[in-house]
């Protein structure tokens, strides 16, 4: 018999629910990634998977191994923290790159950056500040 039979029922139900919530949200996020029509809409879709999609599955895994081994198993928590901190960084960088590319091509979807008034700064604000 698999070790799954050793998990008592009161723990199995919340673990299963967390698994389904996490996987469901990740699935919906990917549906959005596939179906939404513009890049700036699509950039919102993976955040579903990276916020509560990851949290649900990580919490399910933590609960399962904690119950199975009879002591708190917390290392999956690090995975959740890591994903929560890194995904916004990558998405922000990607958004910046996309805005920059669209602006240099003069794409009308993105608000163009009008030059600064002369009082605030001498140089026209057409370049990307590095």
């Amino acid at each position: 018999m698999t070790p799954m039979a050793e998990v008592p029922l009161w723990a199995a139900i919340p673990i299963a629910a967390l698994l389904l919530i996490g996987a469901g949200l990740t699935f919906i996020g990917s549906v959005g990634l596939m179906r939404l029509s513009s890049f700036y809409d699509r950039i919102h879709a993976p955040t579903l998977g990276s916020s509560w999609g990851t949290a649900g599955i990580v919490m399910a895994s933590m609960g399962y191994f904690s119950v199975l081994q009879g002591r708190p198993v917390l290392h999956e928590f690090l995975l959740g923290v890591f994903v929560t901190v890194t995904t916004p960084v990558t998405l922000t960088l990607l958004a910046r790159a996309a805005v920059f590319r669209d602006r240099t091509e003069g794409n009308p979807d993105v608000p163009a950056r009008e030059p600064l008034p002369p009082a605030a700064g001498a140089a026209p604000a057409d370049g990307e500040p590095s």
């Binding site: 919102h44 990276s50 916020s51 998405l91």
Partner: peptide, 12 residues
């Protein structure tokens, strides 16, 4: 950015 529905694009 971590909150679904809003994304940070660029800070001037």
């Amino acid at each position: 950015t971590a909150t679904p529905g809003t994304a940070w694009m660029q800070y001037d």
